[in-house]
Computed example of a mutant assay.
Amino acid sequence: MSEPARASWLRPALTGFRDAAMLPAWVVGLSLTGVGTLARDSGFPVEVAVLSTVIVWAGPSQVLFFASIATGAAWSAIAVAIAFASLRFLPLTVSLLPLLRRPGQGFGQQLLLSHYVAVTSWVEGMRRLPALPPEQRVPYYLGFGNALIAISALCTYVGFHLAGVVPTPVAAGLLFLSPIFFIASMSAGARGWPDGLAIALGFGLTPLANWLFGSGFDLVVGGVAGGTLAFLLKRLAAARGGAA
């Protein structure tokens, strides 16, 4: 890579790293301190706890992994459970990768980019990437994602060594930081009343979905149903406006 090309990659990558390190990465990282605590309680060394954050990069799946190990579950059952728990990232990946696709981009790079997809990187990517020139999006996203993982790994390390020190209410509050930040970022990125309506309907329908389908699918069903209803209402409003 030539010097100008390297500079054109480095600048947006550093900008992405900085933007993530300003707040989003710490929100995600603090919510993962509990993973380090759980790993220690399960008898794993700190290296395994940190490595799980770097490789798995999904708090619920990491909790499922360490909790299943602690209960003596079979490795095959653990692998299947984590795979199903990670299916929630599929629609996020499908909607985000088109913003990162570039001419000549190979499958390997797309696979690498998909590894960084998480709730925070998705909502921030959907909010920030469209405003960037297409050639800057991949380095910016990689810088942003690497900041998320690096700081999360650091917080996992700290959480491992703070096991038994942090009071339970504080640990629960840290876990709650991530969904609060996700809701705030998603609301800030709403474009017009249909997006706001989709968010509101998703929240309103999730308890009903929980009652009908259980806690395993309530968020997915509530979100899809809310988004679909908002989309249909937007089309209906547009049709009526055109008819008028």
Rank of each mutant, 00 (worst) to 15 (best):
A25F: 04
S114V: 10
I78Y: 07
A81N: 03
Q109E: 15
V224T: 00
A243F: 08
A172C: 06
W75V: 15
V158G: 05
L175Q: 15
T53V: 11
S42W: 01
P4T: 10
P98T: 09
A58R: 04
R6T: 12
P130L: 05
P133C: 08
S68W: 04
L129V: 06
P139M: 06
P91N: 11
A243N: 03
A171D: 13
V54M: 12
S76E: 11
V166T: 14
L14G: 12
L219F: 03
N210K: 12
T15S: 15
G29R: 01
V138P: 04
T53K: 10
T206W: 00
G222Y: 00
Q62V: 01
S187I: 12
E47H: 11
A184V: 14
F84M: 14
V224C: 02
L177Q: 00
A163W: 05
G143P: 05
A25W: 05
L148I: 11
F160N: 03
G204P: 01
G104A: 06
F203R: 03
I183F: 14
L90T: 13
W211K: 07
P169C: 13
A118E: 08
I69G: 15
M22G: 12
D195A: 11
S68F: 04
S121P: 11
E3T: 15
F176W: 08
G189N: 07
P103H: 03
R127W: 05
G43T: 04
M126V: 13
V224Q: 02
L38S: 00
G29Q: 09
R235Q: 13
L233P: 00
A21F: 05
S215Y: 04
V158C: 03
L201D: 02
Q62Y: 00
G59P: 02
P98K: 11
T228M: 13
Y157F: 15
S52W: 01
A244H: 08
R6C: 10
I151W: 02
M126F: 07
A172K: 09
A225L: 13
G222I: 01
E124M: 15
A172Q: 10
L87P: 04
S61K: 01
V221W: 02
T228F: 10
V166W: 07
H161S: 13
P179Q: 01
P133Y: 11
N210H: 14
I151T: 02
P98H: 09
L112H: 03
L38P: 00
S42C: 02
L23K: 09
T120E: 08
P139R: 00
A163Q: 14
F160I: 03
W26E: 05
G16F: 09
A243E: 11
W122L: 07
M186D: 01
L87R: 13
R18V: 06
P12L: 01
S185R: 09
L38C: 03
L154H: 05
V28C: 00
V220I: 14
S31W: 06
R11S: 13
L129S: 04
A67R: 10
A77D: 14
G34V: 02
V28I: 06
R240Y: 07
Y141R: 07
D41E: 15
G143H: 02
F89I: 08
V56P: 05
Y157N: 08
F144G: 05
W193G: 01
V119F: 12
A230M: 03
A83F: 14
V158D: 01
G143V: 04
Y141D: 08
F44K: 04
A198I: 08
L236W: 15
V166M: 12
L148F: 08
A238E: 14
G72I: 00
A25H: 06
W122M: 09
S187P: 01
V28W: 02
